[in-house]
């Protein structure tokens, strides 16, 4: 299946050539979890992240589906 992975803030540094907010197309077997996609992208397993799949809060254990949009942020805030 195809997943859109979008990295924000400081996270593009883990994927050379990637740019904040620009989707990276990822091919993955069916039932791949968020955590597996993140590991394959080189993002440390113990990093505190904000995860959104199609705009909804997600966990590393969540299974992805075809054409899901996985947006990943480090811990950020402002206001």
């Amino acid at each position: 299946m195809t997943i859109d992975l979008i990295l924000y803030a400081s996270l593009p540094k883990f994927v050379p050539g990637s740019v904040a907010g620009i989707p990276i197309t990822v091919q993955a077997p069916d039932q791949t979890t968020v955590g597996v996609v993140l590991s394959q992208a080189g993002i440390p397993d113990d990093m505190r992240l904000i995860l959104l799949v199609n705009g909804l809060s997600a966990t590393r254990d969540q299974e992805l589906r075809e054409n899901d949009r996985l947006a990943v942020f480090p811990t950020i805030a402002g206001g």
């Binding site: 803030a9 400081s10 959104l52 947006a71 942020f73 811990t75 950020i76 805030a77 402002g78």
Partner: peptide, 18 residues
């Protein structure tokens, strides 16, 4: 770290995604 690097406007992308 986060506030120093990007300021409060770091929120634009996450509120948009959400």
């Amino acid at each position: 770290e986060g506030l120093a690097a990007y300021g409060t406007n770091v929120l634009t992308n996450i509120l948009n995604e959400a």
